[in-house]
């Protein structure tokens, strides 16, 4: 029945609040709670079991004195930069090619995107096989007569990370291509007509008009790629398992191994906190651009 009293604010929208409980619990317990828990425990001397015995920055000092961690960071850096640049370039160029009103566009798009449906484990194993020096590409080229040909990234510590990169690009560039294509399709046909009337060459139109207009798409792509890079784990486990030696270790694997193989929780917590820091360094400028910009726009 109609009520004339202002109802309790807590009870208003009660159903919505009950329905949102899983989200609220997830946010509070997992995303906030667990993150804080890990960060706090990274300052303790936990080993087999977590315990709250604080030792300041000792875990971090040990972390940055471990060659395996340093190699992990170096690999992440190389993999990250290369993967970012290559994904963006390949993704954009392919999208631009597909945008030329070509035949078989759907077929080609399907072919380029299908690896994205596959898991990193499957991707890693496929490329482990293709890059196998005794039976894969290297042996095929040698059998063709070029006997000194050497392409064995998975067995050469100096270039192993590039072997992983080839697989990573194969798996992920289709997604970037699709994003870029959607961005290109979103550009007004009149822009192209105007630049044709002005007699601007096509490549110049792309470089100086279209790409600047697609800034939001690029920002999204960059955030997507980088947040994926920090998480790289399955691909390494499947393709090289960190080898040869420790040449293709990455931070995510360092965390996992510290926690679940070496019973060295403190190191795992410290390393994962460093990963979080990496993400924050990427994310905060992005959030600032995205949301700070909107506020200025209004």
């Amino acid at each position: 029945m109609a009520q004339s009293m202002r109802p309790n604010t807590l009870l208003r929208n009660l159903n919505a609040k009950i329905a949102a409980m899983p989200m609220i619990i997830t946010v509070l317990v997992i995303f906030v709670g667990c993150t804080i828990w890990t960060v706090v425990h990274s300052f303790t001397k936990s080993r087999m079991l977590p315990k709250l015995e604080f030792i300041g920055f000792d875990q971090y000092e040990r972390l940055w004195g471990t060659s395996r961690w340093l190699i992990s960071i170096e690999n992440l850096f190389i993999y990250g930069i290369c993967s970012l640049v290559l994904s963006l370039v390949i993704g954009f160029v392919l999208a631009a090619l597909l945008d030329q009103k070509i035949r078989f566009e759907n077929t080609l798009r399907s072919i380029i995107l299908f690896p994205f449906a596959l898991s990193f484990v499957v991707t890693g194993l496929i490329w482990q096989w293709i890059l196998n020096p005794d039976l894969g590409i290297q042996s095929v080229v040698r059998d063709l007569g070029w006997t000194s040909f050497a392409f064995d990234p998975l067995y050469n510590p100096d270039i192993v990370i590039y072997g992983v990169l080839i697989a990573g690009i194969w798996q992920g560039s289709g997604l970037i291509m699709v994003l870029m294509l959607a961005g290109l399709r979103g550009i007004d046909e009149d822009i192209w007509n105007a630049s044709r009337i002005d007699g601007i060459p096509k490549w110049k139109t792309y470089l100086f008009i279209v790409i600047p207009m697609m800034k939001p798409v690029f920002v999204t792509a960059i955030v997507l790629i980088t947040s994926g890079i920090v998480k790289v784990y399955d691909l390494i486990v499947a393709q090289t398992n960190g080898g040869p030696g420790i040449a293709s270790e990455v931070p995510a694997k360092y965390v996992m191994d510290s926690m679940f193989l070496k019973q060295n929780l403190g190191q795992g917590f410290a390393a994962s906190t460093m990963m979080l820091l990496c993400v924050l360094i990427i994310l905060i400028p992005y959030a600032y651009l995205e949301f700070g910009g909107k506020r200025n726009g209004k």
Partner: peptide, 19 residues
């Protein structure tokens, strides 16, 4: 809550795994 939830999508899983 929604903003934090979205932000959570970017936290590396490794940070939350052990807890």
């Amino acid at each position: 809550f929604f903003a934090v939830l979205l932000f959570g999508a970017f936290i590396p899983y490794q940070v939350m795994i052990y807890p």
